[in-house]
Simulated assay, not measured.
Amino acid sequence: MIVLTASGTGGHVYPAIAVAQYLKEKEFSFLIEQGRVSQSILDRHQYDYEAFPIFRKKLWSYFVGFFKAFFYFRNHNVQYVYSFGGYVTIPIVLAACFCRIPVMLFEQNTIPGRANRLLSRCVSKICLSFQESEKYFNKKAIVGGNPIRSVYLSDSVVDSLLSLSWKLGKRCLVFGGSQGASSLNSFIESHYEWFESQGVSLIHIMGEASYRDVYADQPQIICDSASGVKRVIVPYIDDMKRLYEWADYVVSRAGATSVSELMVYRKPALLIPYPHAVDNHQYYNACAFVDLGFGIMALQDEVSKSVLKNLFQFELNIDSEDVARFHGWKDLVS
């Protein structure tokens, strides 16, 4: 049996789901924390899990988590643990090490999370998304990419979007990550007509909270009877794969999962790092993305029409060897 453990955000749990999809018929289970979005994500993907009462600022809960994980490992034939970062993984990985179960860490960002840095001393292998992370770890670290799901949830909204009669011209997808991004949304909203003037069709994923504040539950499809659909605004999308395939260009934050998806689907992008991310890791994710030749970057207060024009003139300049490394994680978990 294989155990996958991840903290409660989509950025941690989606790579774990990608590995679960790759494992297919092998027996596995998830160990996660109670009360976080990871529970609903795993429910929707119909995966079994155990949710432990581990809380970031309550030290006693780490001891509870350690003993719960310890007895879980004693009562199950666990051969390997794959850990995807976040504070919840600390007691679970330590319990696995105590039980002498091999552990592999997955690090999604260029600047490693604090939990992974702490746990790196007692694990068997570390799979990195970016070469820039190697300096934080020892020789156990291998650049293998950030696992990306091969199968996304079915999505009737995407079915509807792709069935529309879109205006001819360039297509741009805009999103701010699973939680949306208010400042990015505001900039894009104020430039809707500019996109139209440039002949660029737009799908703008606002995030559920921002969408409700502006549009309630009303669908937003802007079209011209003569030329077709010019712009669609939606709150959330499950099946991002088909929207990446629809888009010519992408504007987004620089979260690890978004960056990895853009690289796997080879989409030129403008990345706007979230300025308040822990250790400013989104900025360094964006720098690595740009260095690999996938797109351009602008800080939040630097975004302008000229920056967008640069995006629409950008051409990919990537090395096939770099792309191949993004799939190296598959060899590590096989």
Rank of each mutant, 00 (worst) to 15 (best):
E302I: 03
L262R: 02
L243Y: 03
L311K: 01
Y244S: 00
L299I: 10
K305C: 12
L316S: 04
V251I: 15
L311W: 00
N280K: 12
L243H: 09
L308D: 08
I237M: 08
S210F: 09
E302K: 12
I221V: 15
A286T: 00
A209Y: 14
M297N: 04
K309G: 10
Y236F: 15
G255S: 08
K241T: 08
E302N: 13
I296P: 04
R242W: 03
S258N: 07
G293R: 01
R212S: 13
G295H: 03
K309S: 13
G255I: 06
A298R: 01
V303P: 08
T257P: 05
D248H: 11
V229P: 05
F314D: 06
M297R: 07
S227R: 11
H281L: 05
E245D: 13
A247M: 05
N285R: 07
P219Q: 10
S320C: 10
D319R: 11
V250G: 02
A209K: 15
F312S: 05
A298Q: 02
F312V: 00
S260F: 02
A288I: 05
Y283H: 13
A226T: 15
S258G: 09
F289M: 03
F294R: 02
G295T: 01
R231L: 13
D279Q: 09
F289R: 04
P219R: 04
V323Q: 08
Y215V: 01
M297D: 03
Q313W: 10
E321D: 15
L270I: 04
V259S: 03
S258R: 01
G293M: 03
E245K: 11
M240N: 07
Y215N: 04
L270M: 06
D319K: 12
A226S: 15
Y284K: 03
I296N: 06
A269P: 00
Q218V: 14
L299A: 14
S258L: 07
L271C: 01
Q300F: 08
V303S: 06
D217A: 12
L270H: 01
M263C: 10
L262N: 05
F314H: 07
E261G: 02
I237Y: 03
A216M: 13
D322F: 10
S227M: 09
D213Y: 10
L262Y: 05
D301A: 12
D238Y: 14
V234I: 07
V264N: 06
Y283C: 09
V251W: 00
P268L: 09
V303N: 03
R242L: 09
D217G: 12
A286D: 00
A254V: 02
S258W: 07
Q220G: 00
E315T: 12
V229I: 09
D217M: 11
S252L: 01
Y283W: 13
D224F: 01
E321H: 14
R325N: 10
D319T: 02
E302G: 08
A286N: 06
H276R: 11
A254P: 00
S320T: 14
R266I: 05
E245S: 12
S225H: 14
V251E: 00
Y249D: 05
L270R: 00
R253G: 02
P275S: 04
P273C: 02
D239L: 00
A288Y: 06
V259N: 07
A324D: 13
K305M: 11
D224R: 10
V278P: 04
S227G: 10
